[in-house]
Computed example of a mutant assay.
Amino acid sequence: MAAFDASKREWFLEVPINPGTLEKRLALRGQHIADAMPKVEAGIITLAASILSKPTEDGDNKDMIKAIATVVAKTEEEARNILVDDVYTREGIWDSDKIQVYPLRTGIRTQK
């Protein structure tokens, strides 16, 4: 993980997943993960997950309604651009017009 940089802060991002994009999302998942991994290894992306419309019974991906992430960046714009530049946004899977970005201060964090 990268050394602490006081000029950067953590941001919480959420973006809706456009309906009807499951097949396309699954087809692009390998590229999406491969593109994200250097940012994970550099300590820029600190969490990536999905919000589901209901609990999944079989581990499938069909009930994802939003993607969420925490990222380390200097500015809100820099944080937002991590999602804007993602293949899921470029290919219309994420609704980039509805990205929400919030400054984040963690009180408690544990590993899963």
Rank of each mutant, 00 (worst) to 15 (best):
25 R>Y: 10
42 A>E: 01
1 M>R: 09
2 A>E: 14
29 R>H: 07
97 D>W: 06
22 L>N: 05
94 W>D: 09
25 R>L: 11
86 D>F: 04
94 W>L: 05
63 D>G: 06
44 I>R: 00
28 L>S: 09
105 R>W: 12
20 G>C: 11
7 S>F: 08
66 K>F: 15
31 Q>C: 05
2 A>N: 13
31 Q>F: 07
12 F>K: 00
52 L>N: 11
20 G>L: 03
80 R>N: 07
31 Q>W: 03
2 A>D: 12
86 D>A: 04
15 V>Y: 05
95 D>L: 03
31 Q>D: 10
28 L>P: 02
51 I>D: 08
1 M>I: 07
79 A>P: 02
28 L>T: 02
111 Q>W: 09
26 L>S: 10
8 K>W: 07
76 E>G: 07
5 D>P: 03
28 L>W: 01
41 E>H: 10
103 P>T: 07
61 N>H: 12
43 G>Q: 03
3 A>M: 15
73 A>G: 01
97 D>Q: 13
47 L>H: 06
112 K>F: 15
112 K>G: 14
99 I>W: 07
93 I>V: 03
84 V>C: 06
4 F>W: 09
10 E>K: 12
70 T>R: 01
92 G>C: 06
93 I>T: 04
13 L>A: 01
41 E>Y: 06
98 K>E: 12
31 Q>A: 14
62 K>M: 13
88 Y>M: 00
50 S>G: 14
53 S>M: 06
10 E>D: 14
22 L>D: 10
44 I>N: 00
69 A>P: 06
109 R>S: 14
79 A>Q: 01
39 K>D: 09
51 I>Y: 11
69 A>Y: 11
74 K>R: 11
52 L>A: 05
70 T>C: 12
51 I>M: 13
11 W>D: 02
4 F>M: 14
29 R>T: 06
14 E>C: 10
55 P>L: 12
46 T>Y: 02
36 A>R: 00
74 K>V: 12
68 I>Q: 04
34 A>I: 02
19 P>Q: 06
39 K>E: 10
107 G>E: 09
34 A>V: 03
98 K>H: 13
16 P>I: 05
27 A>Y: 04
22 L>A: 07
71 V>L: 05
26 L>A: 08
82 I>W: 01
5 D>Q: 04
82 I>G: 01
109 R>H: 10
86 D>T: 03
59 G>Y: 04
20 G>K: 01
66 K>H: 13
107 G>N: 11
79 A>E: 00
59 G>R: 01
51 I>F: 11
82 I>D: 02
79 A>C: 03
36 A>T: 06
58 D>E: 14
76 E>M: 07
41 E>K: 08
6 A>H: 13
23 E>W: 04
40 V>I: 15
85 D>F: 05
89 T>A: 15
47 L>W: 03
96 S>G: 15
2 A>P: 05
53 S>D: 15
19 P>I: 01
2 A>W: 04
57 E>D: 13
109 R>F: 06
65 I>N: 08
44 I>G: 00
68 I>T: 08
28 L>H: 02
40 V>F: 09
25 R>M: 14
111 Q>A: 12
65 I>R: 01
43 G>S: 05
71 V>C: 08
22 L>H: 05
88 Y>W: 04
54 K>C: 12
38 P>K: 00
110 T>W: 10
69 A>R: 01
93 I>L: 06
62 K>R: 15
